[in-house]
Design a protein around this nucleic acid. Structure first.
Length: 585
RNA sequence: GGUCUCGUAGCUCAGCUGGAUAGAGCAACGGACUUCUAAUCCGUAGGUCGAAGGUUCGAAUCCUUCCGAGAUCACCA
């Protein structure tokens, strides 16, 4: 149950009653009404602006309408107190009994609590990573990969039907470069001494590929023309690179439902890119024309020429975009258009792309493309993940591909662990740059939210499974069976604060999913952990507040139920983030 | 120069897509360990939400213009 939609329903009922009494106009539109937790605790548990937003439909002053609504709400059994404040806010104080029922709600189905129907089973296509198949994943890919994966988990949890998709850029020139680089390594494996020229990939990771090629083909292609081996070596190398990338992703617990090949769009029976362009030409959205030179930026080699252009300016872009290169092959954008058309045709009305910051200039044209291709029926949300700046002990790590000093994703995971990388990458808004310090993220301090949240979970497990049998051997506690447990014994304000926090979880999940912002889950967990630790420590100061109250089984059972509920929600939230809820630290 | 993102406490960042007196962690200062895990907690102090206008009952949030940081800029991917 979502507390906020629950009370929104109650408030709506009250307003509907006013409608039938003629106080509220039948034309009333329920829009802009907020039901939320007020910042200030003295304003109660739930606050609504309903009277201010709907005042015009009742032709009353906000405070007068608030009075009318309040009269209806006062009698409701879940509500203890109704106050009218400020310009017309209605503040509700919720009865304790209402909060307490959250606990059995969680414990009856711990993995279900917080799930929502917000997605209504809608199909969502989530494309992320899509790193070129030319080498191992490096840290730059890491954030987008983790963000995309967490967003996928979040959307699934919120009731969407998510397809995780990886677009393999296997059609451009860079895979020819890959094939040539692999060929050199093949020659090397055959015993020749090689020199890697500028422009080819020098990385050692191609050595095993060359070795494997040599084992497979012997010296068949030594000294032969590129035309004889290029296609063959290209396929082989791309497969090898994708295997490597899949392995890297696995280290982060990331996998995909669909690996979509760019080449498949132009190979085989039909050229889907051509078909897309032709269709748009017929609709007048693609034309032959010339582009003006870029504004403000001087290009010496600007070459005005006629080309095939997509009329993206009709759909909100700044300039029209080229679809065919001067050598006759398609631009990356052309195949990407065809790709997104394919997604839409596969039934994905909602598409989400996760890109690095260096692609942000590409958003407008891609959105324009989706608009044109889907006749404005499909939506595309592009999430940009900003750069990750690496540090070690406060010193920035300079990376250079040429100098071979770039850090791979695998190295990061090996050094600090999957959970740390994942949590840290998610403990920030996706569109803000992030500093990642190898030394700091493994420090065991309060400022490190990964350990803080995991530690809190470990604490709950310690209380439930180690200390209870030790301290109260004759007591059994089954979180699945609370029939004989009197939760009313939970009376301390710190206890209620934890429960209120638990009640926020469904709403947090829902808004995070709606906004495509998984970081909200990470911040929520930090907050929940803080509430719990606060209560925990209150018990060290005031012994009768401890969870395990040696002489009182009833009280202990009530408190353990709350501890178990907290554990369940932490565990649930961590699973959305793809982080392990550890039992011991 | 165009476009996009960002600018909130000394530092790192949240702020629930317009709500009431703007929050947390770190750092500073003062406290709590014969403990249910101190990898924790309590308290004090700390702000012109980059600046100026505008929109309205109400703005850190929306619009405009500036300032500053980063990314990107025909035919790469």
């Amino acid at each position: 149950m979502n507390v906020f939609s629950h009370f929104e329903g109650i408030i709506l009922d009250a307003v509907t009653q006013l409608q039938s009494e003629g106080v509220m106009s039948p034309d009333m539109v329920w829009k802009g009404v907020s039901v939320e937790t007020p910042r200030d605790e003295s304003h109660g548990d739930i606050s609504t602006n309903v009277a201010m937003v709907l005042a015009r439909f009742a032709k009353m002053k906000p405070r007068d309408l608030a009075q009318k609504v309040a009269e209806k709400l006062e009698s409701h059994s879940d509500i203890d107190k109704v106050d009218i404040a400020g310009p017309g806010f209605i503040n509700l104080t919720i009865g304790k009994a209402f909060w307490l029922q959250i606990i059995p709600l969680i414990l009856d189905a711990p993995t279900k609590y917080g799930r929502s129907e917000a997605g209504r089973g809608q199909k969502v296509n989530l494309e992320f990573v899509s790193a070129n198949p030319t080498g191992p994943m490096h840290v730059g890919h890491c954030r987008g990969a983790i963000f995309g994966d967490a967003l996928a988990r979040l959307l699934e949890f919120a009731g969407y039907d998510v397809t995780r998709e990886y677009y393999i850029n296997d059609a451009g020139n860079q895979v020819n470069v890959l094939a040539r680089s692999a060929y050199l390594r093949y020659c090397e494996a055959a015993g020749q001494s090689i020199e890697i020229p500028e422009g080819l990939y020098p990385g050692d990771y191609l050595k095993p590929v060359g070795q494997a090629l040599f084992e497979k083909y012997g010296d068949n292609y030594l000294g032969k023309d590129e035309a004889e081996w290029l296609a063959l070596f290209k396929d082989f190398s791309i497969d090898a690179m994708m295997d490597m990338i899949r392995d890297d992703l696995k280290a982060l617990d990331i996998s995909f439902d669909v690996y979509f090949s760019e080449r498949s769009l132009i190979q085989g029976e039909k050229d889907v890119v051509r078909a897309t362009i032709t269709e748009l030409q017929e609709r007048g959205i693609v034309y032959e024309g010339t582009l003006p030179p870029p504004k403000g930026k001087l290009l010496e080699d600007w070459d005005e020429r006629e080309q095939t252009l997509f009329r993206s300016t009709d759909y909100g872009d700044d300039v029209d975009r080229a679809l065919v290169k001067s050598d006759g092959s398609y631009t990356y954008f052309a195949s990407d258009m065809a790709y997104h058309r394919d997604k839409f045709d596969r039934g994905f009305g909602q598409m989400i792309d996760v890109w690095g910051a260096d692609h942000s200039g590409y958003i407008k044209r891609m959105k324009a493309a989706v608009k044109a291709l889907s006749d404005d029926k499909g939506t595309l949300d592009v999430k940009i993940v900003q750069l990750v700046n690496l540090f070690r002990d406060g010193q920035p790590l300079k990376m250079s591909k040429r100098a071979g000093t770039f850090v791979t994703l695998r190295e990061v995971v090996d050094e600090v662990g999957k959970d740390v990388v994942r949590f840290m990458m998610l403990y920030r808004k996706n569109d803000a740059a992030l500093d990642f310090d190898f030394a700091k993220v493994v420090e065991n301090k309060r400022e490190n939210p990964v350990y803080y949240v995991q530690y809190t979970h470990a604490r709950t497990q310690s209380v439930l499974h180690r200390k209870l049998p030790e301290m109260m051997p004759d007591m059994t506690f089954d979180p699945q069976n609370l029939d004989s447990v009197d939760l009313g014994l939970l009376t301390d304000e710190a206890e209620i604060a934890v429960i209120k926090c638990l009640a926020q979880y469904p709403k947090t999940v829902e808004s995070a999913a709606l906004m495509h912002e998984p970081h909200r889950i990470a911040f929520y967990l930090n907050d929940l952990a803080s509430n719990f630790n606060s209560l925990y420590n209150k018990g060290t100061d005031i012994p009768h507040l401890r969870f395990i109250s040696g002489d009182n089984k009833q009280l202990t059972a009530a408190r353990l139920a709350m501890v178990a509920a907290t554990a369940a929600v932490i565990s649930s939230g961590l699973q959305i983030l793809g982080v392990e809820p550890v039992d011991e630290m």
